[in-house]
Design a protein around this nucleic acid. Sequence first.
DNA 1: ACCGAAACCGCAAACGTTTGCGGTGAAAAA
DNA 2: TTTTTCACCGCAAACGTTTGCGGTTTCGGT
Lengths: 344, 344
Amino acid sequence: MKQSAVTIKDLAKELGISPSTVSRALKDHPDISPETKRLVNALAEKLDYEPNTIAMSLRSKRTNTIGVIIPEIVHFFFSTVISGIEEVAYKKGYTVMFCQSNEDYEKEVIDTKALLAHRVDGLLISYSKETTNFDHFREIQRKNIPLVFFDRVPTDELHCSTITINDFESAESAVDHLVIENHLRIAHLAGPQNLNISKQRLAGYKRGIEKHKLYFEEGYVQYCGKGDFEEGYRCTNELLKLSERPNAIFANNDVAAYGAMKAIKDAGLKIPEDIAIMGFSNWQFASLTEPQLTSIAQPGIEMGKAAARRLILELEAKDEDLPPVDQVLKTDIIVRGSTRSTQK
Amino acid sequence: MKQSAVTIKDLAKELGISPSTVSRALKDHPDISPETKRLVNALAEKLDYEPNTIAMSLRSKRTNTIGVIIPEIVHFFFSTVISGIEEVAYKKGYTVMFCQSNEDYEKEVIDTKALLAHRVDGLLISYSKETTNFDHFREIQRKNIPLVFFDRVPTDELHCSTITINDFESAESAVDHLVIENHLRIAHLAGPQNLNISKQRLAGYKRGIEKHKLYFEEGYVQYCGKGDFEEGYRCTNELLKLSERPNAIFANNDVAAYGAMKAIKDAGLKIPEDIAIMGFSNWQFASLTEPQLTSIAQPGIEMGKAAARRLILELEAKDEDLPPVDQVLKTDIIVRGSTRSTQK
DNA sequence: ACCGAAACCGCAAACGTTTGCGGTGAAAAA
DNA sequence: TTTTTCACCGCAAACGTTTGCGGTTTCGGT
């Protein structure tokens, strides 16, 4: 069960010099003669010496590791974010430790404890739908370790950098799009309201309704808490019962949108002729369905990259505390068959 | 940038006793009096002492960390595997460090180096499509650190435990299913042949063809290397040119199957009446499309769990070397509209 | 011949734990 | 009273690095 086991001491003994000299030689310290450096490096190569990062961490108090907590990995958007995180972390010489909270508050606090125990240099977090208590985040800050939120971010009680998309404007322009396609009775399948993103999307939707002076009634906003397929199906059936039946549905996410699609098909209605559907996130399969789903593309990879870049920036600005920044990424409406009223 | 900073020494100084005593008291060592233990634990609680895992690792040579390398995270199947891994790792008190190779050989070897440098206790790997040289895996073994492969596993030159599904039988029963549904000219979109899984699926397909004495010609097997949507589309168009046009296509994976679906629709043919389609992996969206895709469900979560369980077993069987085991998980055919010839 | 400055290197402590071994005091046995 | 036996605790080394400080040479300059 031993690792490679060749240490600086071994090199030193072999060469009849001191460990300090070996250490310095390996890092090209000016105090060491070129000749010695040559010898040391040659031997290190030969015995394939590899520095013990654990020992280095113990001294330097840095692990070159960043911790990531996301609600769930089996989720198209989050998996793209992770991918982005991994990419820049790798390029900057960091490795990532990762946990999923499974949308469970308890697990989330245990995860943060675990990552702190493993002495990650910094943390990247998108918190669970359940999380309303932020004490575990405050604990992180108390220990002075950098923390960046992405996608699901707290309103600014914690002073952390955040990476988000412009949910409000995206939702608003979703309404714009539907109006252009001549759908004027637009309903919304809203997400969990303790998540800022859901609130913003709902708010953007309402803004769009007002801006265009569209018809609206209470029933047009259906709150589907979990936002899964079944909820989308159920909520859409509610919408179909309304006397002023909407002719477009803007869903908080793609999966709920597909629930809506099924409900509409089951009701014998046509998409988009009778009712148009629009999702949010542009999941991989949005282009594979029939009709294809119009959706709002969230730049997941970019978000991951931005979050990681920001965190590493804060990590490496040793002394001076950088003031937190809120970076907002742009989305794109991907127009497909589920809303296109006219010809292809 | 300091962590909580309270150490065993601090506790010792505060209580006027030695660090060794504190250490022992905290681990409930019999040499320490109940009274002292009480005092130590009380103070530890008060100052919220947390053991420095780095220091512990340095002594014990164990990090309680397992490394995972997968081809890509933005992939339904692999994300489910990771999810399973995380779940059991968490339960057993391990955290996971994770890298994606992006199907790139060079990145894969760099990743293994990085994980080894971070002194993970063991590794879980599914290698890239490009990988044909296994030296970096041998290096891991040389260092005597446990390694378990899953899904994409080497043929037994390395002596490692593996977790796979029964690709051969699954493919064979896919053919069985198609025959039952009365599709007797079955083509196959094959995957990259340096991957065992692809070879097995192809072999299982061929076995099915022979068993049922079905019509076959060379052109019925199309090799789509990358196995993505475009390849599936392209290869299917090749199939459509054949004089004895197949009336069923069994694809190596779901995405390719959707490429096939598009090609068939574009050709003005009906699914499954003219040509049935069957995928492999049962991606999330298989039930959301029109028609829904018949596919073979791989138990991703189970695979992840099994792999992690096996690795941890080997990790904790300190001395005696466990002989490698090959665990094969069962799949299920999920029958949907893309192959169902009859009613419903 | 002496001094000063380079150039090169080693000592030892430190990071926070763990642990073998030995030491103390007091109670029990002789 | 002396010895043995406990119960309890501290010393110090070790894990593999890094680094401030000081020590030896060697050499060019006066």
